[in-house]
Design a protein around this nucleic acid. Structure first.
Length: 530
RNA sequence: GCGCCUGUAGCUCAACUGGAUAGAGCAUCUGGCUUCGGACCAGAGGGUUGCAAGUUCAACUCUUGCCAGGCGCGCCA
């Protein structure tokens, strides 16, 4: 079917080239793989019509004639509707062959081999406290985006940038030191703007019992280990942990400042060193070295991005919180100034997360709602699933009651229930192997509807891949589960007709393959029993 | 003041980047269990897509101006 879709776009291109090329100066559509072939042919007719100021119906019927000639055997019928839409109905044989292809190649049927090297930086939360529910969304979305990219064959490096230099960490360490004094019964005072959360006392207590030589180092690794523990709970793994302090120690920042200086993009004002960001599209010039001689966060971020690009990377993807959107142009202008294409960096802003049922959470005094509390409340799979149900740019309201609801109101259960039903039938049928020769016995509308839905997975993946929006996988899973439940309701699998039974077991196996593939991409374990 | 996100059915959200009668779930109402798991399925009602103009064969989608909510505009990170 993937081939079938490509076949049709190829044929359309050829027809257009032959018949209409003289009047078209630019390509009709970009080679965007995001549409199915029906839309593609309709678009061709409608867009041609608007370019040529001709009747779209006429163009559509011309295209139809050519298509019918080229792909007669693959198509049941082609129809033309009102303004100029072309509907292509795939022949049964093509559908059945596709199912057999899925049975044979499993998830490889849907994979690609794109082989871009991508550095995916996400989360990068300050190591000054436990992860919040907002961090959780960034972590899960980042992880799943990575899975989707890898599924299409990209080489993905998952990277966490540790802000272990600068004022925020200093303040945190000061706060810890004051808490240690408190534990030791000494006079103490949390500094202005310092950290007041209960968790600061946990670190302080650990310091008192472990007596580390370097409190700063100890507290930092203590917090990082808490973060890693939360991530482990969610099944998330980072390939690289990049230390900001190390970039400073390695003189990487001096290096990029030198480059910029040679380009005449650095100037001094009010005892500080500035970068002329406005020359590259930013709305203000930015400080790189403060008047007290310290480097800014921005300065090390320039060095960090330069470092990432220098690692022979074709694409940088950063996931940031909504408070960083003003920061995008700043970093891009620096990338541009260093002589790279600023489009190498793609930033995804992950919008805020709120809780619908806040009272349920076992909130610890003085802290925001923690990711770890959420995970222990609803579990890994539900946490991951509900973090993905909205577009990245939309606010997410996490409904804990719904996530815990053991009923069909809960879309995750709806999806998992489909998985359990399939497993249950397999068990009852005692099936071990699937033979594609039986597939030809499928003929009912419901059977074919399931196959069509299986093939739609390609388009869900395309959309998710090119938009970097995992939500399309979720939407697809819900649609697949709905089609399956509908099939299940009116069609018996195990029955007297053994040939049909074997054919339908093949159909269920195809469904299982796709279901598992989609759930695995989301990092959710498919249910066998519920 | 400037920038970003959001506004669609009573509620929570879709709508494949300008396409076909704006669709799902919840809630409401109706029907279906001697059937592989009813944690399901079939059906009904419910809309001036925040408001107002504009662009064209076609606008939830693009442009402009308003209205409402959220966030950001540091020599913080």
């Amino acid at each position: 079917m993937k081939d079938f879709s490509q076949k049709i776009s190829k044929i359309l291109e050829d027809i257009i080239k032959k018949e209409y090329e003289a009047v078209i100066d630019e390509p009709l559509w970009e080679a965007s793989p995001r549409q199915d072939f029906g839309d593609l042919s309709s678009m061709a007719a409608l867009k041609l019509a608007s370019r040529l100021k001709q009747d779209p119906l006429e163009i559509a019927s011309n295209l139809k004639a050519h298509l019918e000639e080229k792909i007669k055997s693959d198509v049941e019928k082609i129809e033309i509707l009102k303004p100029g839409f072309i509907n292509i109905f795939i022949a049964k044989e093509v559908l059945l062959n596709s199912l057999n292809d899925i049975l044979e190649s499993k998830e490889k049927f849907f994979q690609r081999n794109l082989k871009r090297k991508i550095i995916l930086e996400f989360l990068s939360a300050n190591p000054t406290g436990p992860l919040s529910i907002a961090h959780g969304r960034q972590a899960v979305v980042g992880d799943v985006v990575g899975n989707i990219l890898e599924f299409f064959g990209d080489y993905v490096v998952r990277e966490y940038y540790i802000n272990d230099a600068g004022k925020q960490l200093d303040l945190f360490i000061e706060s810890v030191k004051e808490r240690i004094k408190e534990i030791n019964g000494e006079k103490f005072a949390i500094p202005e703007g310092g950290y007041l959360g209960e968790y600061v006392k946990d670190v302080a207590n650990a310091c008192v019992s472990e007596k580390p030589k370097d409190i700063r180092e100890f507290a930092l690794s203590y917090e990082l280990s808490l973060i890693k523990k939360d991530l482990e709970q969610l099944g998330i793994h980072f390939d690289n942990w990049i230390s900001q302090q190390k970039l400073i120690d390695d003189k990487k920042i001096e290096k990029v400042i030198d480059i910029l200086k040679k380009k005449g993009l650095i100037f001094e004002r009010e005892n500080a060193i500035w970068f002329s960001a406005t020359k590259f599209g930013d709305d203000k010039d930015r400080v790189i070295k403060k008047s007290d001689g310290e480097l800014t966060y921005f300065a090390s971020d320039i060095a960090y991005h330069e470092d990432k690009i220098e690692r022979k990377t074709q694409q940088l993807i950063n996931l940031w919180g909504p408070d960083h959107h003003g920061y995008i142009e700043r970093v891009k202008s620096a990338i541009h100034a260093l002589g790279y294409d600023k489009e190498i960096l793609k930033v995804i802003i992950i919008q805020l997360v709120t809780l619908k049922t806040k009272e349920k959470m076992s909130k610890r005094k003085g802290t925001a709602v923690l990711l770890s509390d959420l995970i222990s409340e609803v579990g890994k799979d539900a946490t991951r699933f509900y973090y993905l149900v909205r577009k990245n740019s939309s606010h997410l309201e996490f409904d804990i009651d719904l996530a815990e609801d053991m009923s069909f109101n809960n879309p995750l259960y709806y999806v998992q229930y489909a998985s359990s039903r399939i497993e249950s039938i397999f068990q009852k049928a005692g099936i071990k192997k699937f033979d594609s020769k039986h597939t030809s016995n499928l003929e009912g509308n419901d059977d074919l509807a399931v196959i069509r839905m299986l093939l739609q997975f390609s388009y869900a993946l395309e959309k998710a891949y090119y938009s970097l929006e995992p939500v399309f996988i979720i939407e697809y899973l819900k649609a697949l589960a709905a089609v399956f439940h509908k099939f299940y309701e009116t069609n018996q699998v195990i029955g007297k007709d053994k040939n049909l039974e074997k054919a339908r077991l093949n159909l269920l196996e195809g469904t299982r393959i796709v279901l598992h593939c989609a759930l695995n991409l989301l990092g959710i374990t498919p249910a066998k029993k519920m």
